[in-house]
Design a binder for these strands. Structure first.
Length: 492
RNA sequence: GGGCCGUUAACUCAGUCGGUAGAGUAUCUGCCUUUUAAGCAGAGAGUCGCGCGUUCGAGUCGCGCACGGCCCA
């Protein structure tokens, strides 16, 4: 591709010249005694009493190089940080220095030496020995502007990570967030499990699945759209508290808010209700925020968000009328709702049920207004086919959704454990599917059989991890929090 | 799926009215032993995303395509 590029050609020649001098280009026998972080800690602890004869064997990638002829300053970086080194011909000898002059920014090096302070006060490794650990053939992007081109940043994320420290920080934050969720649940006795990614019947959500095929079994399989039905089978099996931090897959468009492959946390707790989970959710998100940010509030795209509970709770109906401007008398009236949608310029597919119309209106009119953490509760049965009916109103379910920063972050409910009702709800979904709704749930007979063995009263919840990471890292696009976001293949 | 914007040296970007390609960084050569976007002097480096068209002449204008970004659905 860039094989003809002059810079790369020169680097290849350099590598060949080094090899001709019997220099190993890719050795693996250098032993590191200290990371950058360890050396910095050592210096910090000793303060004025640093032993400048102590030897450190360090390694990393050269990130900067300032040559003064017979002496050179470099910066090198390992995974813990960056340090300056000073390479002097007087210290390492003429021959070794001549060899070092052939190293480039981007190469990996191993240095053995002592620490000292330069005139400007910067602690620096004075090289007694330096050797090449890996020759880089391609030059890194320019040091000052870094790598900006978004397409290159996503396709060659390694360059993005090398060049842009803030990007590196986002992904470290991401890992910390996931670990905080995990620790919170483990602490409360939840069992972390793994359930199938390839499923014969995709269930647990309303979405279009990816299809694949198992040759030996001669069987069509789907990439999961959610782990829900498998996790509830485990609750039936006696794991009263389970969770899975999972990748699920939805065959939809990509955008700043959607990647076809995304990360979800899903957990189930027996003998709990959706109300218990709302309390748990406040505690859990508060814990994660405090752990990761060290405080309970943050700024997302100009809005300050405070995670301190208790959070506002309002019913779907109230949300629609108060924030969506829909008259309460209109809420059950399909035709009036359609008229209203039209007047608001919201397009709605004709076949949609009242519940779906309401959700569509909610998405457009209400969701963007829910900036501070807010629970919306009481969703209609027809759009919640896996949720338990509300005791006070059999058309409603014991369900909540959590909104933060104008986006849905979590969805939870008391689980439907009545197998007869579950079967009826599946059949209802199948009817929708036959009527042309490709996102309707599939019938899962095996799951109904599982329920017939009895599932303890249970509540469960799914959390959109990517979205929450976006909030805590102030990322406008989901691609900024997914290491390798889905992009189109480059044509020949 | 629709709209707008982008794609020029390895990287970040200029490029006027259509007249034959520019800068900084990086690279190469020379000088330089406490610099940190080191410095000074010099040099090399381009399929202007791809294709077709208009034109005497296209990085520039038109059409199509590819990829990407943002917004809308």
């Amino acid at each position: 591709m860039d094989e003809t590029s002059e810079v790369i050609r020169q680097r290849r020649e350099k590598a060949r010249a080094l090899a001709d001098q019997d220099i190993e280009l890719y050795p693996n026998d250098f032993k590191v005694s200290h990371t950058v972080d360890a050396v910095k800690k050592y210096i910090h602890q000793r303060a004025a009493a640093v032993d400048n004869t102590a030897m450190f064997a360090m390694a990393g990638r050269i990130t900067g190089l300032r040559s003064f002829g017979k002496a050179t300053f470099i910066h090198f970086r390992d995974y813990t940080g960056q340090l300056q080194a000073y390479i002097k011909q007087d210290e390492i000898g003429k021959q070794a220095y001549a060899l070092f002059k052939q190293f480039d920014v981007g190469d990996f090096i191993g240095i053995k030496g002592n620490v000292f302070q330069t005139r400007t006060g910067e602690w620096t490794l004075l090289a007694r020995e330096i050797r090449l650990l890996c020759k880089a053939i391609r030059p890194l992007p320019e040091k000052f502007h870094g790598l900006r081109d978004p397409e290159k940043r996503y396709r060659q994320r390694y360059l993005d990570l090398i060049m842009n420290p803030n990007v590196r920080d986002i992904f470290i934050q991401r890992t910390r967030i996931v670990q905080a969720f995990r620790n919170f649940l483990l602490e409360r006795g939840f069992l972390e499990v793994e359930t199938p990614i390839m499923q014969p019947i995709p269930g647990g959500a309303e979405a279009t699945p990816f299809k694949t095929f198992h040759d030996a079994l001669g069987m069509e399989l789907f990439l999961r759209i959610a782990p829900e039905l498998y996790l509830k089978r485990l609750v039936i099996g006696g794991f009263d508290r389970v969770f899975e931090i999972n990748h699920s897959f939805r065959n939809e468009g990509v955008s700043t808010q959607h990647n076809p492959e995304f990360t979800m946390l899903e957990f189930y707790q027996a003998y709990a209700t959706y109300k218990d989970l709302m309390a748990l959710t406040e505690e859990m998100f508060g814990f994660v925020t405090q752990q990761v940010l060290g405080e309970m509030h943050f700024t997302y795209q100009g809005n300050t968000i405070d995670m301190t509970g208790p959070w506002r709770r309002l019913t779907l109906k109230d949300a629609l009328s108060e924030l969506g401007g829909i008259e309460p008398s209109m809420l059950g009236d399909r035709e009036r709702l359609l008229d209203f949608a039209r007047s608001e310029g919201i397009e709605i597919r004709k076949t949609r049920r009242v519940g779906k119309i309401l959700m569509k209106l909610f998405d457009v009119l209400v969701e963007p207004k829910l900036i501070e953490p807010t629970f919306v509760v009481d969703y209609p049965v027809e759009i919640s086919p896996l949720a338990r009916r509300s005791s006070s109103d059999s058309n409603m379910t014991e369900r909540f959704e959590l909104f933060i920063g104008g986006r849905e972050i979590a969805n939870g409910f008391s689980e439907l454990n009545d197998p007869v009702d579950q079967k009826r709800r599946f059949l209802d979904q199948v009817a929708d599917r036959e009527a042309g709704d490709e996102e309707a749930h599939y019938m899962d007979e095996d799951y109904v059989i599982a329920l017939e063995y009895g599932m303890a009263p249970t509540a469960g919840e799914g959390v959109g991890i990517d979205r929450f990471v976006m909030l805590l890292t102030n990322a406008a696009s989901i691609r900024e929090v997914i290491l390798f976001p889905q992009l189109k293949k480059i044509g020949q």
